[in-house]
Amino acid sequence: MNNEQQISILVLDDEPVVCKRLRPILEKKGYAVETFFESEEALKRFKEKPFHIVITDLKMKGLDGMQFLTAVKELSPDTEVIVITGFATMETAKESFRKGVFDFLAKPFKLGEISDIIQKAEVKVRGRIS
């Protein structure tokens, strides 16, 4: 990975509308984006290919977002994880940071807000590899 390398982003949210909104915006910004509605599938893909940045919802059927981010951090500690949640609590926010997330974002949010966060995560990723 170098500074010319395309940054890869995995988006996991069981609400299709979120992936539908995010994907075109992120692709337009030059990121390589893959979207998933189910955490098991997303984790399977992550095991095949680690991503630079992961954006994950928390409340999902099956493997929930907290378990997913734990697995991601175990597999690839350098991956920056951004948690997005529609059902935020102080506890989930604190636990997310304890597990090393880059940021915690409650829904609703404007695309500009998450774009800013992703940009900061990208700077961190590129800083690590340069």
Binding site: E15, G86, A106, P108
Partner: peptide, 13 residues
């Protein structure tokens, strides 16, 4: 709007 549904989620929580 999706935003309004999400806002309700936060208040329910």
């Amino acid at each position: 709007s999706q935003a309004s549904i999400e806002l309700i989620n936060q208040l329910v929580t």
